[in-house]
Write a protein that binds this DNA or RNA. Sequence first.
DNA 1: ACCTGAACACCGTTCAAGT
DNA 2: ACCTGAACACCGTTCAAGT
Lengths: 191, 191
Amino acid sequence: MAASAHRGAPLTPEEISATALRLIDAGGVEGLSMRKLAVELDVNPMSLYHHVDGKTALLQRVCALVAGRLDLPADDDAPWQERLRALGHACRRSARRHPSLWLYAQSHPEVTGTDHLIWRALDRILATAGIDADDLVHARKTLFALLSGFILGETTGALDEQGGAADRDQTFEAAVDFAIAGLSAFRKSTA
Amino acid sequence: MAASAHRGAPLTPEEISATALRLIDAGGVEGLSMRKLAVELDVNPMSLYHHVDGKTALLQRVCALVAGRLDLPADDDAPWQERLRALGHACRRSARRHPSLWLYAQSHPEVTGTDHLIWRALDRILATAGIDADDLVHARKTLFALLSGFILGETTGALDEQGGAADRDQTFEAAVDFAIAGLSAFRKSTA
DNA sequence: ACCTGAACACCGTTCAAGT
DNA sequence: ACCTGAACACCGTTCAAGT
C-alpha cells in the first residue's frame, strides 16, 4: 500500500521541481503537499526532506525553474515600444501556462527575489525610452504595478468578471498603448 | 481548560466578523483558523458553524465589512483627475489598515464579488473624463490592473524591494500622473 | 549516507448526542 | 434551537531508529 523504495535513480532536484510544477499546474499551489508529491515520485514523504529544505524552499526552486523559461525580448534595436510590449507578452504567456504558481509568486515576492530578470530588462527598455533619471524608479515601479495587476486580474478571472465582452488580448494591447502614452508624463516632467 | 459557555450574549454575526478581522490584521489570513477564532470569542469551535457557513463564507463577510468602510470620493463636480486620485488613495488607505485581507481578496476575487462599489465609482469618473464608449471597458480594466498591482506591490513589499529610495506616496502620485496621461490614449482613438 | 515509521501539533468540517 | 465532544481526513515537520 505505502510507497515502496524509489525505482533506481536517486531522486534528482530537477525531477522534484519538475514534478512539483506539474502538480501545481494540475491542482494549484494550495493542492500541492509534500505528501502528495512523495506519492507522485513513488517515495516516502520523509525522504523528500533530504533533498529539499521544506515546502517554501521547494516553491522557490519551482519559481526559479519557471523564471528561467521566460523568453524575454532581446536588447536589440527594435523600438522601445515594441520591446515593452514583448516583455508584457512574455510574462503573460508564462502566467497562462502556470497560473497558480504566478498567483502564489505575486503574493509571496520573497519567493522570487524580486524577479531580477524581468525588472532589469524593463529598466533597459525605459532607459531607451528616454525617461528622466529622477523618474526612472517611479516609472519602473508604475509599470511593474500595471503588468503585475494585469496578470493578477487575468489569472484570477477578476478582469473577465468586470463585464464587457472585450477580448483579453485586445484589452492587453490597449493597456500597452495606455502605458506608452502614460510614460510621456515622465518624459515631459523636466522639459 | 477548554473554553466554557459563551458569556451571556448569543454571539452576533457582527461580533464574529469584527473579531475575525482583528485576528487577520494581527496574524494574517493564513494565521486565522476557526479554532483560534473560537478561543478568542470564548466559544466552542463547533458553535461557530451555527452562525457562519464555513471559513470561506466568514472571509466573504469580513471582506464586505472592510469594503463598507472604504470612503470613496463623492460624485461631486471636482475635476475627474482629482476624483481618480482620491479613489486610489481610499483603496490604499484601506489596504494599509488591512494588508493581509487585501492580499487575500486580490488573489480570491470570488470573495469580493468584483468589488462593485469601487468599479462603479471608477466608471463614473471615466465617463466624466470623456472616454470613448468603445474604450471604456478597456480603460476600466487597465486602471483596475494598475491600482490592483500597485496595492499588491505595496502590500507585499515587492515595490519597496525594487531599489530606489523613493517615497511610496511620491511614487503613487507619479503613478496617478502616469494614468492621467495614459488615458489620453483612449480619448484620442476616435479623433 | 540515505531512508523511514511513528509521532507532534496543527487544520476544516461532519455528525451523533446531549441540554 | 442551540451547543458540544469525538472523530475523520488531512497538513508540515521532527526525530530516533533502522539499513
